[in-house]
Design a protein around this nucleic acid. Structure first.
Lengths: 262, 262
DNA sequence: CCCCCACATTGATCTGGATTAAGAGACCCG
DNA sequence: CGGGTCTCTTAATCCAGATCAATGTGGGGG
């Protein structure tokens, strides 16, 4: 718990109560009373408070839960034997991670980037829910499918975009997803919870080179970036130059509208 | 259609009849008679013959179907404006691609690597199936979830592994998945339908460098590779050195066993 | 109020993989 | 059977981004 708690504070202005998450709409938390989805029984859910930097899922262990983010930021990452790290994606309030139907050795770890609150759902509970509430299946499948599309977009960045393009692409994605989730605050600036090392590990670069690239974009008047406060000065030009496609990277799952705090 | 047709021939020895695909087990093709899943009505399915090199899904267009591969190899890829290509993954007989619950602009294209036969399933048909046959939801979710795990593994390769590691990792994956799907033939060799350019675009490298790397691995006595015939001489050493994890990269979806031609 | 420490920044140098170029096979088609 | 076209192979050179090395700096804890 370093100074990330500082950022956490700014992010806490729109926490989701457990009753507001997609899980309830889809009947995932309160399966015993689908008629009153917004009054889940306490026994059906497990809300966890996670300090910044703690892992909630550990690569190699057997995963038994999926998690809905209620507050804070999470990121998924994969570690190689020698410590090289690849950040695979991140999750904001309303997002679900580790959706699975059965326990398996985790292919990745999930860490809280800021202090976070998550709601755990055991896999078998998810399976039951799918059996009982067919509509939930559609919601969940759409969620996973959107996650897959974003993963593919990241693969394209990693394999075929330059450092400059990757960085810009990543910044727009973080910026847009963050503003969508936390609509309050300065209309045109966000505070990123990511360290430049996190960005590097997400983009397959080194922190040094990420820094240079960020400074370059500032010099080019495309962004303002200071103390992790990001402002995108020319969104259209940046999106164009980095090949950012909001239909892919921002495609919300179809059934999530009721969740969006706006 | 160049000489890939040559390879196609060798791959045609175990075509799947449409009635054998997972779709039937899950009630996806023949939704009107779940009791007799192996006798689908013709009207419920569309089998397509696709020549090598043809796209069955085109990036940017609105996708309306998912496809089950019955014969041949497909690959998914994403094109940037200027023509740079990233290959996102590949599919063999029994695999399903483009599982979606609703039409959306496609985030990627899907191309037949060899001549292929696929069975199309409209998205709305999939949704109906999920509603009517809850068990199908579990199958499908597991499929998508496994695809996501493999995508994450590829991201890790692209972002954090060296050219040598990526190449080795890719070869083992192709080798294992291919032998699992086409168990007949030379017990220890497979014929790859991929060009070295395909491999390059899958690994974020150039064809020249892929070639050098392959030659190097041959010189190191790890593999034999000639005319696209691949033999892995020291699987354990290669898996170890490239960080290949069969629990992730080969994890079959839970409910696919009945599909496996063996 | 100062110290500490994780982060950010900047410069110098190195290198893995890209680019360019030029043959050599293999297969196809006429 | 001969010419055309992909694909593969190898060598020479280049460069984007890595690595190595300092120095700056803000904020939280003592």
């Amino acid at each position: 718990m370093t100074h990330s708690s500082r950022h956490t504070r700014t992010l806490r202005h729109s926490p989701l109560a457990c009753g507001m998450c997609t899980g309830h709409q889809a009947g995932l938390c309160d399966m015993t009373s689908p008629a009153a989805p917004h009054k889940p029984r306490a026994s059906q859910r497990t809300v966890l408070e996670v300090p910044a930097g703690a892992d909630i899922v550990r690569q190699g262990e057997i995963g038994r839960n999926s998690y809905t983010v209620l507050d804070g930021w999470l990121f998924l990452y994969c570690l190689l034997q020698d410590g090289r790290r690849q950040i695979l994606g991140f999750a904001l309030p309303g997002d679900r991670v580790n959706l699975q139907i059965m326990p398996r050795p985790n292919a990745f770890s999930i860490q809280a980037l800021t202090a976070a609150t998550v709601c755990a759902l055991p896999h078998e509970r998810l399976v039951e829910a799918l059996q009982r509430h067919p509509a939930a299946a559609v919601t969940i499948l759409d969620l996973v499918t959107c996650a897959e599309r974003i993963a593919y977009e990241h693969m394209t960045s990693l394999g075929r975009r330059t450092a400059w393009e990757r960085t810009g692409h990543f910044l727009i994605e973080v910026y847009c997803r963050s503003r969508k989730t936390f609509p309050a605050g300065d209309a045109h600036a966000i505070t990123m919870p990511f360290t430049q090392s996190h960005i590097a590990d997400a983009l397959g670069l080194t922190a040094v080179h990420v820094n240079r690239t960020l400074r370059k974009m500032v010099a080019e008047n495309l962004i303002a970036y200071d103390h992790r406060t990001l402002r995108i000065l020319d969104p259209d030009r940046l999106a164009e130059a980095t090949g950012f496609d909001r239909d892919v990277s921002l495609a919300g799952p179809a059934c999530r509208d009721g969740l969006d705090p706006r």
